[in-house]
């Protein structure tokens, strides 16, 4: 169990770093979604089912959709 937790924490830090590292917004959003999924698995490992459900639904589902619509609005604008 401790090995699984260590692997998940390493993946968590890796996905957060990748989300900051990439320049393109779409890849950053995908890595944020992966970050939320790994965080959900960690919450489930510590038996916090309520927080895991909230994180999966809000972090992986809703945030991705809202960020996608936000960046598509940025691209349609004439500001740059």
């Amino acid at each position: 169990m401790a090995v699984l937790e260590i692997i998940l924490v390493i993946f968590l830090v890796f996905s957060a770093l990748m989300a900051v590292y990439f320049d393109e917004e779409l890849i950053s959003i995908i890595f944020l979604s992966i970050f939320s999924l790994v965080l959900t698995a960690l919450y489930l490992l510590h038996k916090a089912a309520d927080v895991a459900l909230a994180e999966a639904v809000i972090g992986a589902g809703l945030n991705t959709a809202i960020f996608m619509s936000a960046i598509s609005q940025i691209r349609h604008g004439d500001s740059d």
Partner: peptide, 28 residues
């Protein structure tokens, strides 16, 4: 998830976001 919030994991916030996902599906 909403109505079994006092028996199983879940509750108002989580179930509400799942209901909002239906509207997002319709839009997309």
């Amino acid at each position: 998830v909403i109505t079994h919030g006092h028996l199983t994991p879940g509750g108002g916030f989580q179930g509400g976001v799942i209901l909002a996902a239906i509207s997002i599906i319709f839009s997309i």
